[in-house]
Amino acid sequence: MQSYSLTHLQELESEAIYVLREVASQFENPALLFSGGKDSIIVAHMARKAFWPAKIPFPLVHVDTGHNFPETIVFRDQYVKDIGANLIVGSVQQSIDEGKVIEEKGFNASRNGLQTVTLLETIEKHKFDCAMGGARRDEEKARAKERFFSHRDDFGQWDPKNQRPELWNIFNGKKNVGEHFRVFPISNWTEMDVWQYILHEKIQIPSIYLAHERDVFERDGVIMSTTEFIEQRDTEPTVRKKVRFRTI
């Protein structure tokens, strides 16, 4: 008798496609968060598969910190054009200009913390009732218990004491007016699965993930790219190295 079994990548893909399709059915106005990073790229790829030959039935939303590598933005724009998707950009710079958030100062200043405010604003402005993202449970211990469907109250807050149990593959996206959900279709994927899948599906990724020559400096044991957005100390000289990015 023939053996009917899937590889781990096929099973994870099938699970993610199932989740994407549930989102399209259970929510009125969902969106897919798309940073141009590898995790959001594979979610977008599977969104194409989930609804093929139709187009992805929700917009891609980029919460733009303004601090991007040019390669990522070039990639983003080309990708969105190629798949015929609708792109919405929420701008952290605009949130700063409007005085809604305050720019961090100092050597380790980053706009990562400010993204949340811009994200919630974008969700409210476009009345999204579900924002899908490429977060994975294996990224850090605290995420190990995160749900596929994660409920947020009408202030956009996550109440970890009040998360719905998730059983089998039955996802409960019921909510009251003003509330929304965050959904993570690749919850069960590991870093290794993501890279194997990119290789297997021959998915294009921004060039900075691949080894290339670049001006960099070292801080606390981490090699960082020399950019106009990060202030370097005198003790952090710029050197030219062959590098690739693990995260963008």
Partner: peptide, 18 residues
């Protein structure tokens, strides 16, 4: 990793590991 959260009263029903 979850012990601290448990002590804070956060619901830990299932943690997934890979």
């Amino acid at each position: 990793g979850l012990r601290a959260e448990r002590e804070q009263g956060i619901t830990i029903d299932v943690a997934y590991r890979y």
